[in-house]
Simulated assay, not measured.
Amino acid sequence: MPLGRRAVAEFAGTAVLAVVVIGSGIAAEQLSPGDLGLRLLENSTASALGLAVLILTFGPISGAHLNPVVSLADWLGGRRDHGGLSTRALGVYVAAQFSGAITGALLANAMFDRSPWQSATQARVTGGHLIGEVLAAAGLVAVGFAVARHGRGVNAAAMAAYLGSAIWFTSSGSFANPALTLGRMLSDSFTGIAPSSVPAFVAAQILGGLAGSSLITLLYRPAARPR
């Protein structure tokens, strides 16, 4: 596919993903104001199902990365096997993803009659949360690149299942996406993250992505032929 068409797919897909994650968080606040566990269930269910649909929709165009960490892992893999994203394509993908996440956050806020431009106030940085983000991003990259070998339908189902479970089993709530983290910074809602917490979360996500990519390289690289 031409790079321009892939960029549009990454922008639109990431924007819709931001609407799904943030919008379902705002809706959960309104539907279940006194029950944190139910709000998390509502948000995680919508996020998992939304991601599966987006992978099936945009996967044939751009691969449905929708996440700078995934694109970085794809670029790094290409340096080893002469495939994956080119350096130019990596830059275009990341720009499309960040702009899409910002657009999606503004749309989600406006859809619920809130001010489009907001700044989240929920501080999230603790040692445990950062460990959770490293694990969440590592698992996301490892699962994504492992199951991609089995077809897009399997990939969509596995990624949805992983995201839905990781929102529950990680202490951080499994942001695992620098672009979406920036978008969530712009919505003072259940899924928001304070600007002061964003740099540490993004650093943890990149570290986790590198760890997940290294694990996949170790597990799936061709074995050396016995001498």
Rank of each mutant, 00 (worst) to 15 (best):
S24T: 02
A27L: 14
Q30L: 04
P33V: 03
P33W: 09
D35H: 13
D35F: 04
L36N: 10
L36R: 13
G37T: 13
G37K: 05
G37A: 14
L38Q: 08
R39T: 04
L40R: 07
E42R: 12
E42Y: 11
N43T: 13
N43V: 04
N43A: 14
N43K: 03
S44N: 13
T45P: 04
A46P: 05
A48I: 07
A48C: 09
A52P: 01
L54G: 07
I55D: 10
L56A: 08
L56V: 13
T57F: 14
T57R: 05
P60R: 08
S62H: 02
S62Y: 07
N67T: 09
S71A: 13
L72P: 00
L72G: 08
L76C: 00
G78M: 07
R80Q: 14
H82S: 15
G84H: 03
G84K: 01
L85N: 05
S86D: 11
S86N: 10
R88I: 06
A89D: 07
V92Q: 01
A95R: 07
A95C: 02
A96G: 06
A96I: 04
F98C: 12
S99D: 06
G100M: 06
G100F: 11
A101T: 02
I102Q: 12
T103F: 15
G104M: 09
A105W: 01
L106Y: 05
L107A: 14
L107P: 00
A108Q: 10
N109Q: 01
A110C: 03
A110W: 13
M111P: 00
F112M: 06
D113E: 15
P116H: 13
P116Y: 14
Q118C: 00
A120M: 03
A120R: 00
R124I: 04
T126F: 00
G128H: 12
G128W: 12
I131M: 10
G132S: 11
V134I: 15
A137H: 07
G139P: 10
G139V: 02
L140H: 02
L140D: 06
V141P: 02
A142F: 12
V143W: 06
A146E: 11
A146S: 15
A146I: 12
V147I: 15
A148D: 09
R149P: 09
G151N: 09
R152L: 15
G153L: 11
G153Q: 06
G153V: 06
G153T: 11
N155C: 07
A157Y: 13
M159P: 09
